[in-house]
Design a protein around this nucleic acid. Structure first.
Length: 661
DNA sequence: TTAGGGTTAG
């Protein structure tokens, strides 16, 4: 039979907050005032979150075989969680459950939560299984435990069913947790239904989870509906919807909602600003990003926000500003370092990226697997095959990081760029993981550069088996055939595209001038300045040709006469945007062109020897994977002839900003 | 009195 242990009352606490024992309490009878004082002291220390002294006081209680009020222990456990005091937490559990004492459901729930927070899921399950009674809190805690594992969604949903069978009704806490288990729209709608029926949708936690998960499942419209039904305004719900649009690629909507949130009386806050920066990054809106930077200055200590700022500058191609942000920060974590390394690599500054990595090894935090992706990317872009192999082979030994699919992808890219196509193919066949379309597309890109038509055909087949609707592959393959004058094969590819209703997204380039964005599509003459842009472009090309420029017509997909090919290249959207930039921007300021597709090789006409237009910087926003560097950076020249400054009247949005709501 | 929300790097 379990032995009861005495529990003392203290004079200062209400009786209802203390455990009582039905048995006579010999200790209390022996010396009640001293023991009461002991319990009172312990309780006070717990409420003060004085961990060290509270633990010492708890040991005194242990020596006397007495216990205090469960609320005091719950405070002590909260303190253990906050300080990650694992051993102390376990000690409290041993103490409250020793000598046959059975903690009540409340305290068991607190301990259960502690084990989940510490990540000791085995201990949590052991306790949960042993608990004589479980309520909605116990079940919800175990739902969180399941979700601690990224693959735990099914288990979490299973727990929801089990608790229903046990007759425990889920509440807002349960739903706001279990929503995170939904990784597809069907499941999400199944869970959304009882939420609406029970009226729990109005709970702000549930609402923000719903918005977030709808966005993650790709249904921004439903997320927006949930947002619009908000009656009580809540900052986090606003943050959720801004984040949802930023994540969903609708930068304009995210920015618009941010302004609406401000008008509704909410302050700029770190989470919203982080999302706004993410939106700027996704759509390469550098000028807008700079304006957000001014607001970020208020939150200098927020590492997440400042990392997002750093990433924005890197992705928008302003490496000088990125470097300044990086240098200024005293607190830098592995994400700051990884962002800076990848940013340098993406912008063609591989040597600096590798130098920074060496510095990180000496003075920075321990690199993680994403850091290594950036390092391999740097090697790949600089064609540093030997260094790439060195980092790839040593990553497990030096940092304990097992190569993952992304690392294999970088190596395929590296081998492909170096022209070692057969070796890359062999490498793929020996990989520990199955190649995905990204890895195959790296090799396909290399086939194009090194004009290996046979291998390209094989690789394209592998990709289309994995994803028959990948438009980029059709285009790339068609380009490869066109480059070898295999026009019949080009026609075949085009036919398959038509049959499968695969459409090529038209290439669009845009530029920010002042506060306006100007977008250009090949052949589109709707821009008010198009006539003068075309005249200026003609003049530039004439000067380039005089200087010895010969257009590389292999970038034209169709079987046209040479003259027609040159004509077709002449008005590519990048060129229209660059010329517009030259005509309308301030002298000695870099011109940044953004693109929705990979930069066409023909835009390389603006290589540094083309001295008449040497201020352009093209930043690519590609849906495809790396081929050429995503930035075409051209040095400043003294001989720039900018032409007249023309006032801007039109405001056109680039097509990537789809309005979802 | 215990359980739940947003935001960073490939």
């Amino acid at each position: 039979m379990r032995q009861r242990v005495p529990v003392l009352r203290t004079a200062s606490l209400p009786a209802s907050r203390l455990h009582t024992s039905p048995l006579p309490n010999p200790l209390a009878e022996k010396n009640p005032p001293a023991l009461s004082a002991l319990v009172e002291e312990f309780t006070k220390l717990c409420h003060q979150h004085d961990l060290r002294r509270a633990m010492a006081a708890m040991e005194s209680l242990e020596r006397h075989g007495i216990r205090a009020d469960p609320v005091a222990y719950s405070e002590l456990i909260k303190c253990c969680i906050a300080r990650n005091a694992v051993e102390e937490g376990r000690h409290v559990h041993r103490h409250v459950a020793s000598e046959g004492f059975e903690p009540k459901m409340f305290l068991n729930n607190v301990i259960l939560n502690m084990y989940v927070k510490f990540g000791f899921l085995g201990d949590a399950w052991q306790l949960f299984d042993k608990m004589p009674e479980r309520n909605v809190v116990s079940w919800t805690t175990m739902v969180s435990a399941a979700l601690a594992n990224p693959q735990g969604g099914r288990e979490a949903l299973g727990l929801l069913l089990q608790m229903n069978r046990d007759g425990v009704r889920p509440n807002m806490y349960t739903f706001s947790s279990v929503l995170r288990a939904c990784d597809n729209l069907r499941t999400l709608r199944v869970i959304h239904c009882p939420i609406v029926k029970s009226g729990l949708e109005s709970d702000i936690f549930v609402r923000s989870s719903l918005i977030d998960i709808y966005a993650k499942c790709g249904d921004l419209d439903s997320g927006f509906c949930v947002f619009n039904e908000m009656v009580t305004q809540d900052l986090v719900v606003w943050n959720s919807i801004i984040g949802a649009f930023a994540q969903g690629g609708n930068a304009y909507k995210a920015l618009d909602l941010f302004l609406q949130m401000r008008r509704a009386g909410f302050p700029s806050n770190q989470a919203a600003l982080t999302s706004v920066l993410r939106a700027c990054t996704g759509s390469v809106m550098l000028e807008m990003g700079r304006q957000v930077h001014a607001q970020v200055l208020k939150f200098e200590t927020d590492l997440i926000l400042n990392n997002a700022l750093l990433d924005m500058y890197c992705k928008c191609g302003d490496l000088d500003e990125a470097h300044a942000v990086f240098q200024r920060r005293s607190q830098k974590d592995v994400i700051s370092w990884s962002t800076m390394i990848a940013g340098l690599a993406q912008n063609g500054r591989s040597m600096e990226a590798l130098k920074l990595f060496e510095m990180m090894k000496e003075t920075g935090p321990k690199p993680n697997y994403i850091t290594i992706v950036g390092v391999l990317f740097a090697c790949s872009h600089a064609g540093m095959l030997e260094e790439g192999w060195h980092y790839f082979r040593s990553m497990e030994v030096c940092f304990g990081i097992k190569p993952q699919r992304e690392h294999y992808g970088c190596m395929v890219d590296l081998l492909g760029r170096a022209g070692k196509l057969e070796e890359a193919l062999e490498f793929i066949s020996e990989m520990e993981c199955k190649p995905d379309t990204i890895i195959w597309k790296s090799l396909l890109g290399a086939c194009r550069v090194h004009r290996n038509v046979n291998l390209a055909t094989y690789v394209a087949k592998q990709i289309l088996e994995l994803d028959p609707n990948d438009e980029g592959v059709y285009i790339l393959l068609s380009n490869i055939y066109a480059g070898s004058n295999q026009w019949e094969d080009v026609k075949d590819v085009r036919k398959v595209m038509r049959d499968r209703r695969v459409k090529k997204e038209p290439g669009c380039s845009w530029i920010e001038v002042g506060k306006q964005t100007h977008a250009f599509i090949v052949g589109d003459k709707s821009h008010p300045q198009i006539e003068s842009i075309l005249r200026e472009l003609d003049q530039i090309i004439t000067r380039l040709v005089d200087a010895g420029y010969v257009p590389d017509t292999s970038f034209v997909l169709h079987d046209l006469e040479r003259e027609q090919k040159e004509e077709s290249l002449r008005y590519h959207s990048e060129k229209l945007a660059i010329v517009f930039g030259l005509m309308n921007s301030v002298e000695r300021k870099p011109i940044r062109i953004m693109k929705n597709l990979r930069i066409c090789g023909c835009s390389m006409l603006l290589e540094p020897d083309a001295s008449s237009c040497t201020r352009a910087k093209v930043v690519e926003r590609s849906r495809e994977d790396s081929d050429i560097s995503n930035c075409l950076f051209l040095p400043l020249s003294e001989s720039n002839n900018l032409g007249p400054s023309i006032p801007l009247s039109s405001h056109r949005r680039p097509p990537l900003a789809r309005q979802n709501a």
